[in-house]
Amino acid sequence: MSSLRLISSAARRVSSFSLQKRGYAEVNDKLKLSLVLPHQSIFTSTDVVQVNIAAEGGDMGILANHVPSIEALRPGVLEVIETAGGSKKWFTSSGFATVHPNNTLTINVVEAAPLENFSAEAIRSNLQEALKVASGSGSEADKAEARIEADVYESLQHALGK
C-alpha cells in the first residue's frame, strides 16, 4: 500500500515537474520590459513578446534574447506587443533603450503618451507656430529649439497619419 502511494506521489511529482519546465521555457521566450518616465512607470519588468522602437539609426523591433545593445531614441512611436492583449502604441520623446545581457530591455524616456491621446488639430496648429518661430527673427538658439519642436510635430503627424 505504502509503496503504491510512493509510486503515485512520485508520478505526481514527475508530472508537476514537467509542467513547471514547460512553463519556464515559455517565459524564456519573452522579454522583460521596463518602460519608465520620470513621473510614471508604464512597464516595470513586465514580460512582453516584442517591442518596436524608433531609434536614431532607424526603426527596429526587439524580441527576446536580443544582443545587448544601446540605442538612442528619436521622438517617435514605441509599440509594445504584449502576450494576449494585442499591441499598444505610445509616442515618446527622445531617450535611451538598452537591451541588457539578462534578457531585459530598459527604456528611459523623458515623456510619453498613448498615441490615441493626441489631437490632430492641436498638432497642426502647434506645428504652424513652431515653423513660424523657426523661420522668424529670434536668436539662433530659439530657432534651433523651434526647429526641433517642428520636427517632433512632423513625426507626430506622420505617426498619426499611419
Binding site: 521596463s34 519608465v36 538598452t98
Partner: peptide, 19 residues
C-alpha cells in the same frame, strides 16, 4: 507618489551600470 515613479526610473537607469 513622485518617488515611486522616480525610483523605478532610477532602477531602469542603473541597470546598465549593474552590468
Amino acid at each position: 507618489r513622485a518617488m515611486q515613479a522616480g525610483k523605478q526610473y532610477g532602477i531602469a537607469n542603473a541597470e546598465v551600470f549593474a552590468h
